[in-house]
Design a protein around this nucleic acid. Structure first.
Lengths: 336, 336
DNA sequence: CTGAAAGCGCTTACAG
DNA sequence: CTGAAAGCGCTTACAG
């Protein structure tokens, strides 16, 4: 049987309370007694029962993370790296991460997962919500614990959020292409209406304007989030003709576009200069290697965890919610 | 405040015991009373406190999963897909998955994670151990719950394990190359001594033998698990000359090799025919797209979860441990 | 057919 | 400076 605190107390000949206090360093215990307790714990290979601790203290030292990850989808990679950033910094502060991924891309699933987390007494929630409006959190979370949003800017519920500077990344990519002399620069984006896509489009427009280039809506293709859709957008842009450069605003679409270009034997960058999104490993081994906008995914996770810890330590007193905006980075390779 | 079972009992005017029994369907309750309880639960938006349930019943309905995932490493993808397979089938059986990834690739970390799981009362452990010998589990797990191993065959501790048929995959890849007329077929493998690498090497040898080709150790390069190491192995094989085909036995190394070939402008398959390992999305968009051995990663996860559920339901009575070996698949594309 | 009560393994006021 | 006891929210023998 697993030894409990009672067994430790008996062996050390002290009270249960004392054992608890030496474990948690929560009140003064004489050195002599401390030693007895430590050695008893060691002898029994005692580990506190986390479940009992949670029940009693109404605190689980656990932060829930909800992230939309489809099976076998390349975009996994981004959120997985974020998750690792979160986990590694939570660990430093003595917290654990409970991961739940929304495989269905449905909002109901997301809600269900939060309710599950609630029943496990999480101390905080970090979420990359798929909802455009996260107002539903008002009913489910009810400010019982802090919520930190990642990737997108939340609407309808207050919370810190950490995002990558997609605006700046997009701006820099398009500016680079324009400076290389390209006048007709295609743009492939994911569904609009969410903050990430919106601001990347803004960056595109802004760069064009600054470079004195006209904004031509026919050069902008909105894709659904799939390889195939990216492929198809590239196909259409190619068929319509006229572009000499292409910027793709997310990683799944970048892959789809590259699939199309490789199949049609478009020479890069001679026939078409290309800049993609997200610095995935595979972008290094395409022909030629791809210039991309890098999002600091691990750092996003770290920052989200830090924000969470801060919130928990501060308590409810601070009503001002912060936006943490992390810089993106232009990674130059052979494709433009 | 979150309502507890007591509040439900009061509102429904029944005992706590009765509420518990209708929740768990664990003894007869008259329809009339059931209805009262249900409506009280709904009215209060009641959810049982999972922590209290675990503590009392000494069962958490949670399966721990430990998997070695390095930050920003492409190999993440394999285990992530496995994890999704596990999670989706556990969910069907009312279990949750608790994920812990060993970021350090160190055995001590692995042990620490298991101890943490223990303190959370997990009902079972699914693990892709990095240890060559998992005998240490005898001390930590002590048969308190079932262990299912994935990816590799365990040594030193008994448990079901589910693996992909690397032997068959490797055999088919090399056979294909030989049948296309290649006589000198290079082989890049990860560290030997673990079941996965070992059996892929065996498959290579077996295919050569069957095709009447000599086994030449100088064509076999053992790499450490990194992009760079794969790159370097390709470089060496190229420098030493003589190979017309190359089979790479895991995905990280495949990427490294492709990086090298692309940089040295080796034409594929004209100069060198290539077969890689693992059907990652990016293998579709290399130039040319890559022929690979596909491992059924999601299915591995599903099978592991099924094996776990079976063990838990069977109890301790069945001492015969099973190997589940899932077929790999040759995915033909342009690189050979 | 249903209820009162013990107890899972802890933490934390309350006493002394 | 340390201990005895209540209680977190459930499940589950034991009674009737």
């Amino acid at each position: 049987m697993r030894p409990g605190i009672k067994q430790v107390a008996e062996l050390a000949q002290v009270s249960i309370a004392t054992v608890s206090h030496v474990i948690n360093n929560t009140r003064y215990v004489s050195n002599e007694i401390k030693q007895k307790v430590y050695s008893a714990m060691e002898q029994l290979d005692y580990r506190p029962n986390a479940v009992a601790q949670s029940l009693r203290s109404q605190k689980s030292n656990t932060i829930g993370l909800i992230v939309p990850i489809l099976p076998s989808d390349t975009s996994n990679f981004f959120f997985m790296t974020v998750a690792q950033g979160i986990q590694s910094t939570l660990k430093k502060h003595g917290y654990q991460m409970l991961l739940s991924n929304n495989t269905t891309e449905e909002l109901e699933e997301e809600k269900e997962q939060i309710k599950l987390f609630n029943s496990k007494l999480i101390d905080g929630l970090i979420i990359a919500s798929i909802a455009e409006d996260v107002g539903y959190l008002n009913d489910i979370v009810r400010s019982r614990y802090p919520v930190v949003f990642i990737d997108r800017k939340p609407e309808g519920y207050n919370g810190d959020h950490v995002v990558a500077d997609g605006y700046g990344g997009s701006f820099n990519a398009v500016k680079l292409l324009a400076e290389k002399g390209h006048r007709r620069i295609g743009f492939v984006t994911g569904t609009l209406g969410i903050s990430t896509s919106n601001e990347r489009l803004e960056g595109y427009k802004k760069a064009l304007a600054e470079q004195g280039l006209p904004y031509d809506p026919s050069l902008v293709k909105v894709a659904s989030p799939s390889f195939e859709s990216g492929y198809e957008c590239a196909e259409r842009l190619l068929a319509e003709g006229g572009i000499t450069a292409l910027f793709i605003a997310n990683n799944v679409l970048t892959m789809g576009v590259m699939g199309c270009l490789q199949e049609k034997k478009i020479r890069i960058p001679e026939d078409l200069a290309v800049v993609g999104f997200d610095d995935y490993d595979w972008t290094k081994i395409t022909t030629p290697p791809l210039t991309v906008i890098r999002q600091p995914s691990f750092e996003i996770g770290e920052k989200a965890a830090e924000a969470m810890i801060k919130r928990i330590e501060e308590g409810q007193d601070n009503p001002e919610f912060r936006e943490y905006r992390l810089p993106t980075q232009l990674v130059l390779r052979g494709s433009c």
